[in-house]
Amino acid sequence: MEQVLKTHKVTKYFYEPEKFQVLKEIDLSVNRGEFLSLVGKSGCGKSTLMYVLSTMDTDYEGELEIAGERLTDRDQNQLAAFRNQHIGFVFQFHYLLPEFTVLQNVMIPALKLAKYSKREIEDRAYEKLKMLGIQEQALKQSSKLSGGQQQRVAIARALINDPDIIMGDEPTGNLDTYNTHLVFEIFQELTHKYHQTIIAVTHDDEFAKKSDRIVEMSDGRIVKH
């Protein structure tokens, strides 16, 4: 199996209010097409680990490699460009840009990447929205949608550049049971049908249980995987 993400002895400290080791020599590798849940008690470091993996947090020791590229010690601008192409994000809140339409929100990361023409990007955005069953909402203002719909738009946005990994920080944390179920099904379909790699931080055991692989953390260490 192809490894899409690999860490070697990732260690991180918090300095406020006092020095505290949150991540202790984490070695983790994720295969392409894997649906991985990162679980653990509050404060165990799972979110912190995910932000290190997301490349947004660069203040760590050890090595991080995604899609065969070593990302440790790269500067912020390079990492931003890397994220744009290789990583999609789904957060607890949708974080859609309220002034833009649904379609525009989905298109923005692709326009930033500028790999395709605007016309093609629009077609691709429609395709993703259709896949998530919300193409009718495409031209609505993103703030006019329901919570579940907004989260699906956020997933479409995460998918638009065909990223190597989708990272989710409590992607269902703010949704009701129905929508949680829906998002989960989408994730499952993405991994099984499209071989999309997903890493999701969650404290929802039910959600985690249904994923392909559960990585449990405790006190900054991976205790079970």
Partner: peptide
Amino acid sequence: ILKAMGFAG
């Protein structure tokens, strides 16, 4: 979110 999606500073 713009920064997360790949917009540089």
